Amino acid sequence: MNRTSSCVLEPRITASRNPGGRPVEPAGAVRPSLGGPGGSGWRVLVVESDVDDAEPLVSGLRRHGHEVETITSGRAALEAYEDADLVLLDLELPDLDGLEVCRAIRTACDVPIIAVTARGTELDRVLGLQAGADDYLTKPYGFRELMARVEAVMRRARPQASPPSVINHGPLLIDTASREVTLEGRRIPMTRKEFDLLCLLAANPDTVIPRKRLMQQIWGDSWSRRTVDTHVSTLRNKLGASSWVITVRGVGFRLGHG
C-alpha cells in the first residue's frame, strides 16, 4: 500500500541545524518526494544526539545519493519530519524520550521510521515497534545492514511504479514488453541480463544506481563485482560508445547519452 505524507502536527519553532546547507523552507511548504531509487535518492532525516555516530551515517547516506538533514533533539525532529521521506531516529535524545517522538510522528503521519538506538533488549525492540517504528536497529550496526533495512522499509512504504513499456532515451529505444533494444533504428541483440541492466539504468535517467542495487536486483544472490563490470563493458561495446554507461567511482553507474 502506498504511503503518503499527510502530517498534521502544528509547526513549532525550528531548532534544527543543517550541515548540508539546504535552505530552510517556510513552515508547511510542500516539497515533492525525490522518489528514492527512481529519483535522486530519499530525503532522510537523521535524528541523532551523538555527533560521532551521526557523521559516518550521514556521510554514507550521501555517498549513496540521498539528501540528508541531521538534527540532535526530539523537538527539532517534530519540526523537521514533514519534509522527510524517511526518519532514522535515535531513541536517546537530550530533551524528549525517543519513543514519545516516534509516537507523535506516527500519530500525525505515516512517514517511514527506523529506530537506530543503543537500547537493545527484547522489551526495547517491542516498545519501539509498538510506538510506530517500521524497523528497529541496535547500535553498533553495520552500514550495509542499515542500507538493506532502509531499502526493505522503503519498498514496503513506497512501492515503485512499473516502468513504461517503451523507454526512449535519445536515439536509444527500449521496448520492455518485447525486450528489444534499438539504437538509431538498428536492433541491438542482448542477453537477458544485459537487457535487465540497461532497462534498470534507462528507467532511472540521470540517476546513479548503486552497484549493490544493480547486483541484488539483477543477479540476486549469485553475483560478484566482476559480473557487473563485465556486463557494463559488454553493453558499452554493443551500444558503440563507453559514454552510454557512466561509471561514478565509489557509487555505481548511470545511463549516459552516447
Rank of each mutant, 00 (worst) to 15 (best):
residue 8 V to K: 08
residue 8 V to R: 11
residue 9 L to M: 06
residue 12 R to N: 02
residue 13 I to C: 00
residue 13 I to H: 04
residue 16 S to M: 09
residue 16 S to L: 08
residue 17 R to E: 12
residue 17 R to C: 07
residue 18 N to V: 12
residue 18 N to D: 15
residue 18 N to M: 13
residue 19 P to G: 07
residue 20 G to K: 13
residue 21 G to H: 10
residue 21 G to K: 12
residue 22 R to D: 14
residue 24 V to N: 05
residue 24 V to K: 13
residue 25 E to N: 06
residue 25 E to M: 13
residue 28 G to M: 01
residue 29 A to H: 04
residue 29 A to Q: 07
residue 29 A to R: 07
residue 30 V to K: 02
residue 31 R to Q: 11
residue 31 R to A: 07
residue 31 R to Y: 01
residue 32 P to C: 03
residue 32 P to F: 06
residue 34 L to T: 06
residue 36 G to F: 04
residue 37 P to C: 06
residue 38 G to L: 13
residue 38 G to K: 12
residue 38 G to A: 14
residue 40 S to K: 14
residue 41 G to R: 04
residue 41 G to E: 03
residue 42 W to N: 02
residue 43 R to A: 06
residue 44 V to S: 04
residue 45 L to Q: 04
residue 46 V to G: 00
residue 46 V to H: 01
residue 47 V to H: 02
residue 47 V to C: 03
residue 47 V to M: 04
residue 47 V to L: 03
residue 48 E to R: 02
residue 49 S to M: 00
residue 49 S to H: 11
residue 50 D to P: 00
residue 50 D to V: 14
residue 53 D to N: 15
residue 54 A to I: 09
residue 55 E to I: 15
residue 55 E to V: 15
residue 56 P to G: 07
residue 57 L to G: 01
residue 58 V to W: 00
residue 58 V to L: 03
residue 58 V to Q: 10
residue 60 G to L: 05
residue 61 L to Q: 02
residue 61 L to G: 00
residue 61 L to H: 03
residue 61 L to D: 01
residue 64 H to L: 15
residue 64 H to T: 02
residue 67 E to H: 13
residue 68 V to D: 03
residue 68 V to E: 05
residue 69 E to P: 00
residue 69 E to D: 12
residue 70 T to D: 08
residue 70 T to R: 12
residue 70 T to S: 14
residue 72 T to K: 08
residue 73 S to N: 11
residue 74 G to D: 05
residue 74 G to C: 05
residue 75 R to C: 01
residue 75 R to I: 10
residue 76 A to Q: 04
residue 77 A to G: 05
residue 79 E to G: 09
residue 80 A to V: 07
residue 80 A to T: 09
residue 80 A to L: 09
residue 80 A to S: 15
residue 81 Y to W: 12
residue 83 D to C: 06
